[in-house]
Design a binder for these strands. Structure first.
Lengths: 189, 189
DNA sequence: GAACAAAACTAACAATTGTTAGTTTTATAT
DNA sequence: ATATAAAACTAACAATTGTTAGTTTTGTTC
């Protein structure tokens, strides 16, 4: 029996609880109860509560970093790159919406090394995003509003998808991608 | 000496700490240290940690409810109403960006009555928002994309302003309002 | 069925939590 | 100055926290 499998079950259960109440409000006894075992038994599979959090967050952050690097380094125009970023966020959200709650709300509870690593990845992600928009404005593909406002507006919507999409039952992923691109790029008016 | 004044100082300090670490991770000793007093002394001014949280959140939620009701009941078209909603969010964010962190991330730690009251207000706020967009689509003022996507997209940006605006030093409130309206309504392409 | 590893258990720990009780200090008004 | 109210303090509590040590159960392999 693979040790990774049971560990991953615990991490998945933890992600759900962290989404509902936040990292600090979830006790190891809460998590154990969700798994149907005693709190001490968790430690046969994981090293600490902190390890669970950092696994959830760092894995996702690396996924975004990898995806963004591929998009940024491709030879597409700014609009195409933005479309790929929207795709990336929707794909990750569909695959692991629970974990995204921790990434968005509990990253500050990471400890030293992982906190720095996360903040570095987040900063570089935003830099890449800003750069794509900047070049798009420069080439005339994107309107010349304040760049920070455009980056923030788009990114905040994409980052909050995890809260919203799981509650929608009638929206197919492909329709979501299509309409989200239209709304974010062309506006609603 | 007015008792409300010192109490409000504590609530303001708490809002800052809640924003940084979340409600559950902030201890009464943390809050006391930020105030330069001992934890027990806080209880001369407040009844409980929970009272602090509910004051922060309910006050803000009622502010949004009042604002939205005025906008929804006015005889303006959908576009004008949306512009007023954007204004409302920016005004509240400028006045109390710390408290908005609790409203967005720690509402689930409210207890029974206040939790229900908050959820009712939030639901009605979203209903009003949805209704404005719906009527706008009906009259042809707003494009007929999926309504949920348009509501979510706009609202998620407005709700996340508190995270972003305090870090921007070079953006004047009026410029923010103007560009935010353009970006949200007319898109960036 | 003996051996072994995986995964659960019980019991306990030291630290931290929100909060209370009772007391002392500080500031204000008469 | 004295009386009063506001606001701080010390000391302690009962409960809960993450985690460890040591033991037993469960399931698989030969």
């Amino acid at each position: 029996m693979r040790p990774e499998s049971r560990k991953q079950e615990i991490i998945n259960a933890a992600a759900i609880l962290f989404k509902e109440k936040g990292y600090s409000a979830v006790t190891m006894r809460d998590l154990a109860k969700a798994m149907g075992i005693k709190a001490a038994s968790l430690y046969n599979h994981i090293q600490s509560k902190q390890e669970i959090l950092s696994t959830i967050i760092i894995d996702l952050a690396e996924e975004f970093t990898t995806g963004m690097n591929q998009i940024a380094n491709s030879d597409q125009n700014a609009i195409q790159k933005l479309q790929n970023i929207i795709n990336l966020h929707i794909d990750v959200t569909l695959r692991n919406s629970d974990g995204l709650a921790s990434l968005n709300n509990d990253w500050m509870h990471l400890e030293e090394e992982n906190l720095q690593y996360f903040e570095k990845m987040r900063h570089e992600y935003e830099e890449s995003f800003r750069n794509i928009v900047y070049k798009g404005v420069d080439k005339g593909d994107i309107k010349s509003y304040n760049i920070e406002i455009m980056v923030f507006s788009t990114l905040s919507t994409l980052r909050t998808l995890y809260l919203w999409y799981p509650k929608q039952k009638n929206i197919d992923a492909d329709i979501l991608k299509r309409d989200m691109m239209s709304v974010l790029l062309k506006g609603i008016v």
